[in-house]
Design a protein around this nucleic acid. Structure first.
Ligand SMILES: Nc1ccn([C@H]2C[C@H](O)[C@@H](COP(=O)(O)OP(=O)(O)OP(=O)(O)O)O2)c(=O)n1
Ligand SMILES: [Mg+2]
Ligand SMILES: [Mg+2]
Length: 1130
DNA sequence: ATCCTCCCCTAC
DNA sequence: TAAGGTAGGGGAGGAT
């Protein structure tokens, strides 16, 4: 049944052949497009929370201030310092100064709020500037912006990095300052306004494109040009087409929280209403042009146009099916696009979800700085209640997000897919439940899906929206519970401890409710005693439900459950078990554990045995540090010659290096994976797919971890050289890095360049010679699987070209062999240069030196040479550059031990024993400590005395601490750490102001007091504000609440709302806000008043409020700054 | 036994 | 046309 074959388990079988021999697609207009020059490779990396169009441009507001700002800034600095020194919430001030030297200015609305970001900076040793100053600010933090804002910001930023808030979050999560490069705002990172590289070109504007453009401008990267279209023509096609214009969809999304304004009455209504909202908000954004074009109805062509997306411009030419001999022109292969790697990762859904998974796994668990003694939840849970696991998963996530504004489609079959071609092999990413009733599943080819259901409506991806919803999703989960383990961007486990009378279902429903209110997408929840059963319960709960499997229900529930429903049982295991006549868990239980372990291995056998009984001992939140980082591409990979292949490889290395850098780690083991078309494999069923392939891999272990792109490229090329393969057979390439270590700040300095030039100038001359011997010996070696045997085919010429390639291209970057180095010179290098050189030599230099010294004071040149050569020979295999030893595959550890045996080494690591190496004081520590938390028993650790515990943890590399930092929440609905801590600092800041200490301070508490009061108010507007605040999750700024409320207010009858009392209440709220914020964040106040002014144009209520609040504001501003604020009329 | 590496399998 | 990535778990089998 499953059509999704061709993937994973078996790339061999393809139920859906019918090869696309004839590309007779519907009239695809190949719009030409501009390539973005985006430097960052993986788009999902580093990109994060979007605030869409809410951000407003602020800078020009302070005309009146002038010189006051200087003094003001000075004052704020002092204040900040005081706070910083007095702070470190959580007591022990063990927070690492991650952001030392970093000083951020937050521009516009962000998620998380500027206050939260401020909290992070404060806690982790950074600075937070309330006002922009070129002298103090080092980074501008900003969410996505409108085009015009980008322009302003570009000038405004004065060349400073403009980064996304996730840079802060991820750095905190990683426990170190990550490179901001990956977090650059997309719009600023390149000349292109967006990386919506796929889909329509912005340059060629038609009416429809304007439409698209506007959206991109507002929201950022939104893929639009294709639109949802039902295959079933005519009948409701027009209808659907009308209402599913992508512009509407995305524009609404930028407004995001507007639950009930979607009345399904007509197709025009909701969209036009939303557009109005957008337009209203727009002036603050200052980008008129973009907006009104959006208002134009999208009279887009029907179905055919859905396929107009196209990645690169060149490829519009002929698309002959496959590699005919000669200059074959594949459409979207590596053949055509020199930036294939880069572009590919902007579009690949699997890349996105893979990357997001990682992000959410890492981001949150560490918000509190340490280990609060009272958080010994282990004991607490034993005493006060039972542990319950809650599994939350969004319903048909990708579909749900993109059809939020099309309630008419809720009961129609809808799927998300790159293509709407009903004969195409694009994969369905997600299908909603109506579609599933036709048998449509994720991973299916769209043609098969259409065959099952011709009426299927296809939407394109909206990765930004997924990201935004996922952020909201996790924001909510982390507020509800502080023991959260992310599974993917739409799915997580929570662990809670439930006291006697409590009902976890209440927590579950409150979570679901909040998720829906914040995202307008439904989530389902499974509850049970362990992760296994909770996840199984979710399946029952779906869609949009929840289900609690109590311990008594477990047996019954499992008994007739199909084994393929068990997580961990996929195609292969299911088939194997089927052969044993096992289909249900009940049947599985009849097999003894011994038998299972014999058939499937120890662990797998036990897993099967346990799972069939509902047993699962995994713990929530014990995810350890990441073990590997890699990148691979197995689609569209076609090479004609070595040059193309190498260029691809180089780009892949860049990508990997970037990811290493982005994660602040370096690696010691590099594995190159190649997919090679199988001997008699027919053309893949999937267009540009890899088809039936043989997987091959080679790996190399280097003694000293690296993240240097040049070095990685050298390594990769060398590894590639081990494959004897005709490049024309290559269908996929991947590079993986493992044995990760935290990048040492000391060694990623800029001195590297210095050394590089030294190397390049100094000693390249002798190199050539030795590289000859490399080829002579070159063969296999390292650790190779089937390498020597595979295909030994007649790839002679190409083989040679590779080798040549290596030697020639490596010329500048490959250092001379050790044996050509002069010991004395090396010895006398400045320490940092030595260290760097040593790194380039993969740590070998140290051995070289140690050996020489150990042998004799001044070895004779001859002796020296001998030793060196021997050394070189012994070590070749583990190093990236030296020749490979054909027969002996001596792992690096061997060698280390050998050294040790000679009494030279003290350390066990391959880099070994180098007391001489400068700046590696961390070495010994690292080596004495467990290399990773995975080797530490968490429960043991938790029970240690507090001081001992922190001692241990301090010894561990920072990025390994995460697993231990989560805590159990004793009762549901407690606030998370982040929020309380941020709030604390805020209170401290404002408590100096006597006015706020009044009993009825509206901004005290979390959520602030006013939320409670307003919630029960008779005034709809006040009530709305409270609701929006609650929905908005982590954000607690008034401007955010106001901007979010804007669309809501449209529905209220303006006349009804003005009672004197409510006006006064609102005024009081503003007044207190002004008092609290005027010093700290005048811009925030400014934004609020701009929004108010806009409201005032529509609403009597707000007009009154504005009228009385504005004088107050100006008085306060005058008081503080001696000027006045100019609040422009939108 | 315990450690490698080279895979395969699984999930999203 | 179409974007089949990513990372961890674990088994087989070889080297210690
Ligand atoms: N083969 C797959 C599986 C998933 N996804 C993406 C799209 C999904 O929306 C998202 C989440 O995966 P889920 O397994 O949670 O599936 P859905 O959320 O779509 O549906 P469900 O309601 O079953 O959770 O991941 C994908 O692109 N390709
Ligand atoms: Mg889901
Ligand atoms: Mg999921």
């Amino acid at each position: 049944m499953s059509f999704d074959s061709s993937r994973s388990a078996n790339s061999k079988r393809s139920f859906s052949n019918s090869a696309s021999s004839n590309p007779s697609n519907d009239s695809t207009r190949t719009k030409k497009k501009r390539n973005t020059n985006q430097k960052t490779l993986g788009v999902a990396w580093g990109s994060n929370s979007r605030s869409s169009s809410r951000s407003s441009s602020r800078k020009s507001a302070f005309s009146g201030f002038g010189s006051y700002m200087v003094e003001k800034n000075r004052k704020l600095h002092n204040q900040f310092d005081n706070e910083a020194s007095a702070s470190s919430f959580g007591g022990s001030s063990s927070a690492k100064p991650i952001f030392s030297g970093v000083s951020i200015f937050v521009d516009g609305f962000t998620i998380p709020s500027s206050q939260e970001l401020r909290g992070y900076m404060l806690t982790y040793g950074g600075r937070f500037e309330n006002y922009f100053s070129r002298h103090h600010v080092t980074h501008i933090v900003c969410s996505n912006l409108s085009n015009s804002k980008v322009k302003n910001l570009r000038a405004f930023s004065a060349g400073l990095p403009v980064v996304k808030p996730s840079w802060i979050l991820d750095s905190v999560a990683a426990g170190r300052l990550l490179s901001w490069v990956l977090y650059q705002l997309d719009q600023l990172a390149s000349n292109q306004p967006k990386l919506s590289a796929f889909f329509t070109p912005k340059s060629s504007k038609r009416a429809g494109d304007d439409f698209t453009d506007a959206l991109c401008g507002v929201e950022g990267d939104i893929e639009n040009s294709s639109r949802a279209v039902s295959q079933s023509e005519e009948t409701h096609l027009t209808k659907v087409d009308n209402m599913v214009g992508f512009g509407k969809q995305t524009s609404i999304e930028s407004d995001d929280i507007l639950p009930e304004n979607i009345n399904a009455t007509t197709f025009e209504e909701p969209s036009s209403a939303d557009n109005c909202c957008e337009v209203e908000l727009e002036p603050v954004i200052k980008d008129e042009r973009d907006m009104h074009s959006e208002l134009e109805p999208s009279h887009q062509g029907p179905a055919t146009s859905a396929s107009s997306h196209c990645l690169d411009d060149q490829n519009s030419k002929g698309c002959s099916s496959y590699t005919a001999p000669g200059p074959s022109k594949q459409c979207h292969s590596t053949l055509v696009d020199p930036n294939f790697v880069e572009n590919y990762f902007k579009i690949s859904r699997l890349h996105f979800i893979g990357t997001w998974r990682n992000r959410y796994r890492k981001r949150f668990p560490i918000l509190s700085t340490g280990f609060n003694p009272e958080s010994s939840d282990v004991n607490a849970s034993v005493i006060s209640g039972r542990k319950v696991i809650i599994h939350v998963d969004m319903d048909c996530f990708f579909v749900a997000v993109v059809i939020r504004n099309y309630p008419e489609l809720l009961d129609k079959p809808v799927a998300v897919c790159h293509s709407n071609n009903s004969r195409g092999t694009a994969e369905i990413s997600s299908a909603n439940y109506p579609a599933r009733s036709y048998g449509i599943r994720a991973g299916m080819f769209v043609r098969d899906a259409k065959a099952l259901c011709p009426d299927l409506v296809i939407f394109p991806y909206n990765f930004e929206a997924y990201e935004e919803v996922a952020d909201q999703f996790y924001g909510i989960l982390h507020r509800k519970c502080n023991k959260v383990q992310a599974v993917s961007c739409d799915e997580a486990f929570l662990e809670v401890t439930v006291a006697e009378g409590e009902d976890p279902e209440l927590l579950a429903s409150s979570i679901r409710k909040e998720i829906f209110e914040a995202t307008r997408c439904t989530a389902s929840v499974g509850i049970a005693g362990n992760m296994l059963m909770a996840r199984i319960a979710t399946k029952t709960a779906k869609p949009n439900g929840q289900y609690y499997i109590t311990p008594e229900m477990v047996d019954d529930h499992l008994c007739q459950l199909l084994i393929s429903e068990l997580p961990g049982i996929g195609y292969v295991l299911r088939e194997k078990l089927k052969k044993q006549n096992v289909h249900t868990c009940g049947e599985l239980r009849n097999i003894s554990k011994d038998s299972l372990q014999k058939d499937f291995g120890m662990k797998t056998g036990e897993m099967l045995w346990n799972y069939s009984r509902g047993i699962d001992n995994r713990l929530v939140g014990v995810i350890q540090e990441s073990k590997s980082i890699g990148a691979e591409v197995n689609w569209g990979v076609r090479f004609n010659d070595m040059k193309e292949c190498e260029s691809f490889l180089i780009n892949l290395c860049k990508e990997v290096a970037l990811r290493l850098h982005g994660s602040g780690v370096q690696g010691r083991t590099f594995t190159l994976k190649i997919k090679k078309r199988k001997k008699d494999a027919e053309e893949p069923a999937k267009y540009m797919g890899c088809g039936d392939c043989e997987n091959m891999s080679h790996s190399v272990k280097i003694p000293l971890a690296t993240d240097c792109v040049d070095e990685i490229q050298r390594i990769a090329k060398r590894l590639f050289g081990l494959f004897r393969i005709d490049v024309k057979d290559i269908r996929g390439v991947g590079l993986q890095v493992s044995r990760l270590e935290a990048a040492d700040a000391s060694k990623q300095g800029t001195e590297k360049n210095f050394l590089k030039s030294w190397l390049a100038s100094g000693s390249t001359s002798t190199r050539q010679k030795s590289s000859h011997s490399v080829h002579a010996n070159q063969n296999l070696g390292v650790t190779s699987g089937q390498a020597p045997r595979d295909s030994d085919g007649p790839s002679v010429q190409m083989d040679g070209s590779m080798i040549n390639d290596q030697t020639s291209s490596g010329q500048t970057s490959i250092p001379p062999p050790l044996c050509h180095l002069d010991v004395e010179v090396i010895k006398n290098l400045p320490p940092e240069v030595f260290s760097e050189l040593n790194e380039i030599y993969g740590g070998k230099l140290v051995d070289f030196l140690v050996k020489g010294i150990g042998k004799s004071e001044s070895p004779s040149p001859l002796e020296n040479l001998f030793l060196e050569q021997q050394e070189a020979m012994n070590k070749e295999q583990e190093l990236p550059f030296p020749e490979l030893n054909p027969q002996s595959k001596i792992p690096i550890e061997n060698k280390a031990r050998k050294h040790k045996a000679k009494g030279i080494a003290a350390s066990d690591s391959g880099a070994g024993a180098h007391d001489k190496v400068p700046n590696n004081s961390s070495f010994e520590k690292d080596d004495l400590m467990p290399s990773s938390l995975s080797q530490v028993d968490a429960s043991v650790l938790r029970q240690l005395p507090e001081d001992l515990k922190s001692d241990i943890l301090e010894q561990l590399p920072e990025h390994r601490c995460q697993a231990f930092c989560s805590k159990t929440v004793l009762t549901p609905l407690k606030e998370g750490h982040l929020e309380s801590s941020v709030n604390t600092s805020e209170h401290r800041a404002s408590s100096s102001d006597p006015v706020l200490n009044r009993n009825d301070s509206l901004w005290v508490g979390n959520p602030p007091c006013w939320v409670h009061k307003f919630k029960v108010s008779n005034c709809l507007i006040l009530k709305k504000l409270a609701q929006v605040y609650e929905k908005s999750g982590v954000n607690n700024s008034l401007s955010f609440v106001l901007s979010q409320s804007m669309s809501e207010f449209r529905q209220l009858d303006p006349a009804l709302e003005s009672s004197d009392e409510t006006i006064n209440v609102m005024f009081e709220l503003l007044k207190q806000y002004i008092i609290a914020m005027i010093e700290k964040d005048i811009e925030e106040v400014y934004i609020c008043f701009r929004l108010l002014r806009r409201f005032a144009a529509k609403s009597q209520f707000f007009l009154h409020v504005y009228d009385i609040a504005l004088p107050y504001l100006q008085a306060a501003v005058d008081d503080y700054y001696g000027g006045s604020l100019l609040i422009p009329a939108s």
